[in-house]
């Protein structure tokens, strides 16, 4: 393997761009939420200001080594997920490791950060954190079922588990997975709502009820790193879903449009819905999305 400066630059620049886009989207979401609720809301750059303020805090407290390392686990998983995603179709600069991992690897590495966070939050001893983790993990069992059904159906349809190749079979607008496999995509997009964690599926982090749950004991540099991780992870999730269901993106503008529309979808669903209880959201996913996913699998099995 010859050493390639362009690639190294890609490894460094991709997370930076992802973070910038993620923070912008978070800022926009606050603005949009405010406008929907007939408020003026903060400026779009508010998330940047928040994170810069947190990074410049002079003191920090922790409850032990595991909490100290929790945010590091989170950012490790976020950046690794991002590096194994083909951010832009056929781009050498953004390819990073995307030939060296596949969809099942991505499903698993995405849990790595959540597990680390859950462990970190666990050590704080705050009961709200533990309750949040318990709810979050329970919800994960809920949405993972339709999610995996959708992905397995698509992997079988594309005869590949590699994202590059899954993008390749979606050449042209009409061949996007949402049109090739509408049922699987529907199941996948309903599961996507759970992944994003907006209402009605925001019970693990419910701010008014659990004081934000798992992150409630993190402050200063810890919260700063967690927010950075969250911005990257949000972007990575959006890219993953765009790659799987909407044919990827061949340039940066296209990527921004697609990811932002997908982001708006989760946001708008959240704005008009109240919060589900944990068991309600689990049962929601185990009913219709799972049935649709099973149907999609049956169709694929019947065709293949």
């Amino acid at each position: 393997m010859s050493f390639d400066w362009i690639k190294l630059l890609g490894f460094i620049v991709t997370p930076l761009i992802a973070s910038a886009v993620g923070f912008t989207y978070m800022g926009l979401s606050r603005k949009i939420t405010a406008r929907v609720q007939n408020r003026i809301g903060p400026g779009i750059s508010q998330s940047f200001i928040d994170v810069v303020k947190l990074y410049s805090k002079k003191t920090a407290i922790n409850h032990g080594l595991m909490q100290h390392m929790g945010p590091v686990f989170a950012i490790t998983a976020s950046i690794t997920t991002l590096l194994f995603l083909p951010v832009i179709k056929d781009s050498i600069f953004f390819a990073n490791f995307s030939f060296r991992g596949d969809l099942i690897f991505l499903i698993y590495i995405m849990v790595f950060g959540q597990l680390g966070m859950a462990l970190g939050a666990g050590q704080t001893g705050n009961p709200n954190s533990a309750i949040g983790v318990s709810r979050g993990l329970s919800q994960m069992v809920g949405f993972k079922v339709p999610y995996v059904m959708a992905l397995v159906a698509i992997m079988i349809h594309a005869k590949s588990t590699n994202l590059q190749e899954i993008i390749a079979v979606q050449d042209g607008f009409r061949n996007w997975m949402v049109f090739q496999m509408p049922l699987a995509s529907l199941a996948g997009l309903l599961a996507y709502l759970g992944y994003m964690g907006y209402a009605p599926f925001d019970v693990p982090f419910a701010p008014a009820e659990l004081a934000s749950g798992p992150p409630s004991e993190f402050g200063g540099k810890y919260l700063a790193l967690m927010m950075t991780s969250r911005s990257i992870f949000t972007f990575a999730k959006l890219v993953l879903f765009v790659d799987v269901f909407f044919g990827g993106a061949s340039n940066f503008i296209e990527l921004l449009i697609k990811t932002f529309l997908l982001y708006l979808f989760a946001l708008f669903v959240g704005l008009v819905n109240p919060r589900f209880r944990t068991e309600q959201s689990i049962q929601f996913w185990w009913k219709w999305p799972t049935a649709i996913g099973a149907l999609a699998l049956l169709l694929v099995a019947w065709k293949g």
Partner: peptide, 10 residues
Amino acid sequence: TRYVTTKDIH
């Protein structure tokens, strides 16, 4: 950076 006990929480 300080260590605080698990009773010292928010």
